[in-house]
Design a protein around this nucleic acid. Structure first.
Length: 435
RNA sequence: GGGUCGUUAGCUCAGCUGGUAGAGCAGCGGACUUUUAAUCCGUUGGUCGGCGGUUCGAAUCCGCCACGACCUACCA
C-alpha cells in the first residue's frame, strides 16, 4: 500500500480532471523522432540554417525540467535516446494549451510536434505547435538537481534510477551486448545452447547452500539449483558434444555488491578437448565481448587485443621475489606468518601456496592473465594434471584457473566454469561430497 | 562475521555544549515571451527510524532494536 501524501493527492486530482475532460491516457500520438537523432542531425546547424530548413519534429518523453515564464515556457523531455528541449508559447502553441501545460508536472509523459529551431543560447529546441499530455505521473520525481542518490532506493527502484541516472542504462546495454557476443561466439564454435532444470531433487555441481521449495503435486521437496553442471554433463554423455547454458543459479548465502542470491552464470562443456583448449576458448570469448581492443577501467588501460598472459601460481609468486620450495609447507607457513596471514594446521602446502599467491601476487595481475597450476588441494573438482603425478602428493595439477585482471568488469553477472572431472576423493580432503 | 558511520518534509540536506523544527528543490497562488538546476514574491507540508531511560525539558545525551552505507574477511 502506498501512503498518500499531498503531492500524490494533488496529482490524483489533476488526473481526475483529465479523465472528466476526455481520454487521460491517449495512445494515438505517433512519435517520429528520437532526441539523439535530432541532435546528431541538426545540433551542428546554425540558427539560420535551421530556420531555412524548416525541419518538423515529433517527439515524446518524460518531462524532466520545466521553466514557465508567463506567456512562454520551456520543457526538457527525456526519451529512450536522450533529452531534447521544447518551447511552448501563447504565440505558436496557443494560449489554451499553454495554460494547460503550466499545470503539468515533472515526470509526466509529454508529446510535442513542431519545427526545430535554436534558442538565443544555441540549444536545439522543438517550437511546439502541438503539445499533449500522454501519461500523467502520479508520483513525484526525486529532486531535480541532486536526483536519486540513496543507494538502497536506487537498487530497490531501478526504474526510478533509470529515469534519474541515464548512465545506468549503459550498464544494461553492456550486459546484453556481452551476453549476445558470448552466444554468437559459442554458436560459431559449434555449441548448442540449452536450458536445464532449475528445480533439482539434489542440488549439485558446486558447494553452496541451496534454497528449498516444495512441489505439491509430487509432494516432494526440491532445491533451486546452485549450478547446472550435472545436467549439462548428462547432455554430453547423451551425445551433445558441445553444450552451454547461460542462466540463473541460486545460492542461499551472503549478499553483497558482488554476491547476489540469484546470479547468472555461463557454463560450457565439450568432449575431446583439454584445459588448454578451454583457456583458448575463454580468451576468444572475452576478446570478442570487448567491443574494442583496449578498455579503460578505473584509470587503467586493459588490453584485450593481444594474447592474454599465462602464468603458473608458483611463477607468479616467484616474480614477487620469493625464492624457495613452493611445495614445502613449512617454508610457505613461515612466509605467510611474516605477512601476518592467519593459518591453521588443516592447511596443506597447496592451500598455503594459494594463500601466498593471493596475498602477494594476485594484486599485480592487472592485465588479462590466466593463472594455471592450482594445487590439487584447492581444486577438488578438477582433473589432475597427467604430466605432474608426484607420487606421494599429487602436485601441480591445474585445473582451476580463473580469468584474472579486470575481465570481470565485462562479465559483471557472468562467470564461467570449465569442464570438470569428478575427483577421486573429495571426502578424503575434507571437502563436502559433490553428488 | 568484524570495524566505522548513518536514519530529520515527496527529494537533497542543515539543526552547536539539551530549550520544543529549518533551507533548497518539488507542490500550491502570483509576476515574467529565448529559459538552461530559470528568476522574483507569497504559501502548504514533519509521529525528527522504533522502544525505553536520564532530565523541569530530548531531533540532540544513554541503552536496546530495526534498516542502511562504507571499509574488511569469505562465497561466483
Amino acid at each position: 500500500m502506498e501512503e498518500d501524501n499531498k503531492l500524490i493527492e494533488e496529482r490524483r486530482e489533476k488526473l481526475k480532471a483529465l479523465r472528466a475532460a476526455g481520454q487521460a491516457y491517449p495512445n494515438d500520438f505517433v512519435r517520429k523522432d528520437f532526441a539523439k537523432d535530432l541532435s546528431d542531425a541538426y545540433g551542428g546547424k546554425t540558427k539560420e540554417e535551421l530556420e531555412k530548413a524548416a525541419v518538423r519534429a515529433s517527439v515524446a518523453g518524460r518531462m524532466m525540467l520545466k521553466r514557465v515564464m508567463g506567456k512562454a515556457s520551456f520543457a526538457t523531455l527525456q526519451d529512450g535516446s536522450g533529452r531534447i528541449q521544447a518551447y511552448i508559447s501563447n504565440d505558436v502553441t496557443g494560449e489554451n494549451d499553454h495554460e494547460a501545460f503550466k499545470h503539468w508536472d515533472l515526470g509526466d509523459i509529454v508529446a510535442v510536434e513542431g519545427r526545430l529551431f535554436k534558442t538565443m543560447k544555441g540549444e536545439l529546441t522543438v517550437n511546439a505547435e502541438k503539445v499533449r499530455l500522454l501519461a500523467k505521473a502520479l508520483r513525484p520525481l526525486p529532486e531535480k538537481f541532486h536526483g536519486l542518490t540513496d543507494h538502497e532506493m536506487r537498487y530497490r527502484q531501478r526504474y526510478v534510477d533509470l529515469v534519474m541516472n541515464p548512465q545506468v542504462r549503459d550498464v544494461f546495454l553492456t550486459r546484453t551486448k556481452v551476453i549476445q557476443s558470448i552466444r554468437e561466439t559459442l554458436a560459431a564454435e559449434g555449441y548448442l545452447e540449452v536450458e536445464t532444470p532449475m528445480m533439482q531433487p539434489i542440488p549439485g555441481g558446486a558447494a553452496a547452500r541451496p534454497f528449498k521449495t516444495h512441489h505439491n503435486a509430487l509432494d516432494m521437496d526440491l532445491y533451486l539449483r546452485i549450478a547446472p553442471e550435472l545436467y549439462l554433463k548428462r547432455l554430453v554423455v547423451g551425445g551433445i558434444e558441445r553444450v552451454f547454458e547461460i542462466n540463473r543459479n541460486f545460492r542461499n548465502e551472503g549478499i553483497s555488491t558482488r554476491h547476489n542470491p540469484e546470479f547468472t552464470m555461463l557454463e560450457w562443456y565439450c568432449a575431446y578437448e583439454d584445459w588448454q583448449y578451454m583457456i583458448d576458448l575463454t580468451e576468444r570469448l572475452v576478446r570478442a565481448a570487448a567491443d574494442k581492443p583496449t578498455v579503460t577501467y578505473q584509470g587503467r588501460e586493459l588490453d584485450f587485443g593481444k594474447p592474454f598472459a599465462r602464468v603458473t601460481i608458483a611463477d607468479a609468486i616467484r616474480r614477487q621475489g620469493i625464492e624457495g620450495d613452493l611445495r614445502d609447507r613449512d617454508f610457505l607457513a613461515s612466509r605467510l606468518k611474516s605477512l601476518n596471514v592467519e593459518l591453521t594446521k588443516e592447511h596443506g602446502w597447496g592451500a598455503l601456496q594459494l594463500m601466498l599467491f593471493e596475498t602477494v601476487a594476485e594484486k599485480h595481475l592487472v592485465q588479462p592473465t590466466f593463472v594455471t597450476d592450482f594445487p590439487a588441494e584447492v581444486s577438488p573438482l578438477a582433473r589432475r594434471r597427467d604430466a605432474d603425478p608426484e607420487l606421494r602428493r599429487p602436485g601441480g595439477d591445474v585445473l582451476r584457473r580463473r580469468l584474472r585482471a579486470r575481465a570481470r568488469v565485462r562479465h559483471a553477472a557472468l562467470r564461467r566454469r570449465r569442464h570438470r572431472h569428478r575427483p577421486a576423493g573429495d571426502a578424503a580432503h575434507g571437502q563436502p561430497e559433490h553428488p
